[in-house]
Write a protein that binds this DNA or RNA. Structure first.
Lengths: 340, 340
DNA sequence: GTGAAAGCGCTAACAT
DNA sequence: ATGTTAGCGCTTTCAC
């Protein structure tokens, strides 16, 4: 329970303790240039003994280099972004770059603020979720003079580069698969469309595919907050009481889909005989449910990894490709989407 | 898809563009000191027009102040730490401090590395999970000369201050509650005890309480990785095939408990008549399961909030209380722990 | 292989 | 209300 009020140590302290110039101490601590084994020893010993921790602020200012990558995402409690982070971290582990995360809560104003904060630390690159940003945000990123990779979505024009999937296409694919399986009376449940552009695009693609088959969504319901599992359960019950004729339910994410599935199984519905189900994301968390929900892989970890790789590539070679990288999500039919 | 190679703007650029000294520009941008409305206008216009983003690196070096709080936690995909983060963020939102997160993956060496990295940015404070750290880590934190709050656990001696619950006591409480309810033949499932000190302490407290009642755990099983829900299901099945006489299963976390619950309900077990269940954490995510699992609130958001408040308090007043704050988790009996 | 000088972009402290 | 000076703790550059 002690807290010494000592001023943090500086290079100078190590220099004095070891009898070596500050410059050489700096070289040793960064493994730079030629330093004799003897002085290296001396310096390292002194540094460790004092408990010296370098001041990166001063280092960054002097070298004009900051080994940080700003990662800006809407949320962390979403099951999807932690996996993106895993991909990013893995890819950066082999480099000397470090990810630093900012959360926007799906609010454009907050995104702008977080971006401003992060850019003021002069990171080496930016990885940011989505293609929709305020004008100010876009301007900041364009002006920062660093690689910027927009992730998760490819339906739009990136500022600099993008890696993701087409959510519109993902929605279309699921719509087609459902029609091909023979379902016709379809209900939709999801988050309130608005802040979440990717959910909206999936919804648009979905309705588009249905329309092409001459089918329209017969019922829909949206939710804002609360436990997704519980919401899925509640919304499913409400919808089936209202529209008992439905033979398929498309959920905008796996969690509410799982809630719906649990309710249906509990009530003795024949899934997928009487009614089929599908979600989105392929969250690993849900392995272990009584039945496996049909879903679609959103390539989260790969997106993170590729984004980080694009940053490092453009850092070593400013003319590295960039552009848009569209990954191909696959449908996983699980146990709840079967031809009938 | 453009990326101008322009050098980042400096205060000097804004100064020249506005015809005001660098110092006054700095004052305006930080809302410091008296600046006439007229010059303030001029400066703000120029800054915005140029798209100037201050360089916090230089600012921090000059002012010797960094408005960052290092938050060091084992994992983000755990359901528990995102909620701690929520508490921290909420509490810091009212201040000018910002949380920066580092992940240790429950590895002491990684904790040490992450800590070193973060401290080298000279944060204003540290919030770190757990009371168990390597000697080097403890030394670094003690030497940093900043407030350090260790969270989640109070079974041990903090470096500087701590907020959390006693996991040993939590385990004991659950053990007592189970005995009082009349269960006697008890099985335990959890993560491999080792890296996760808090799970280990709960287990110790649990067995201790049982021992006091003359009861011993009859079967146990540990897992390392994989989907927790699926693991809970598998382990439960394996354990009940091995030890069909069990009348209670205590899980070290809610996710595996939920997996077990789903399997039991599916197999037609009478829960809690024939067999009772309990988990730990009270994760909100699980609202929506067929039955509500007995569990114990781990006070995650409050812990985060209190920790952040302790940091701010000790920043304004270096002699602010500190010490150990032990919160009191409550048992939530749900539908799976009933007197018999 | 090692050291000395200059300066990174800001802000504290002191003018005016 | 505004400007000037010095310097934060490092690294770059150049000298030896």
């Amino acid at each position: 329970m002690t807290r010494p009020a000592t001023r943090p140590l500086t290079l100078r302290d190590v220099s004095e303790a070891s009898g070596v110039s500050e410059m050489t101490v700096s070289r040793v601590l960064r493994n730079r240039g030629d330093v004799s084994a003897a002085t290296r020893e001396k310096v390292l010993r002194a540094a460790k003994q004092l408990g010296y921790v370098p001041n990166k602020i001063a280092g960054a200012l002097a070298s004009q280099r900051v080994n940080l990558v700003a990662v800006i995402i809407p949320s962390m409690s979403n099951m999807v972004f932690p996996e993106v982070m895993t991909g990013i971290s893995r890819a950066l582990e082999e480099t000397d770059l470090q990810p630093v995360v900012g959360i926007t809560d799906y609010l454009p104003e907050k995104e702008e603020k977080v971006l401003y904060e992060m850019l003021s630390w002069r990171p080496s690159g930016v990885i940011i979720a989505g293609l929709e940003h305020s004008d100010a945000s876009r301007a900041m990123m364009a002006a920062a003079g660093i690689p910027v990779v927009e992730i998760m979505d490819t339906d739009g024009t990136p500022i600099d580069a993008a890696v993701g999937i087409s959510h519109r296409r993902a929605g279309r694919m699921m719509g087609q698969a459902i029609l091909e399986a023979g379902y016709r009376r379809i209900g939709f449940m999801g988050t309130q469309l608005g802040a979440d552009h990717r959910a909206r695009k999936r919804f648009e693609g979905f309705t588009e595919a249905l329309a092409k088959g001459g089918v329209e969504i017969e019922d829909r319901e949206f939710y804002a907050n609360g436990s997704a599992l519980a919401k899925g359960r509640e919304m499913t019950q409400a919808m089936l009481e209202r529209s008992p004729e439905l033979d398929f339910l498309y959920y905008s994410n796996d969690m509410i889909g799982a809630g719906g599935l649990l309710w249906l199984v509990e009530k003795g519905y024949d899934v997928p005989g009487k009614i089929g189900l599908a979600g989105f994301n392929d969250v690993r968390l849900l392995q272990g449910l009584p039945q496996k929900l049909a879903t679609m892989d959103s390539c989260r970890e790969e997106i993170g990894r590729r984004a980080a790789e694009m940053i490092t590539a453009r850092l070593t070679d400013p003319d590295a490709p960039g552009g848009k990288v569209e990954l191909s999500p696959k449908i996983n039919r699980g146990d709840t989407l079967r031809s009938r």
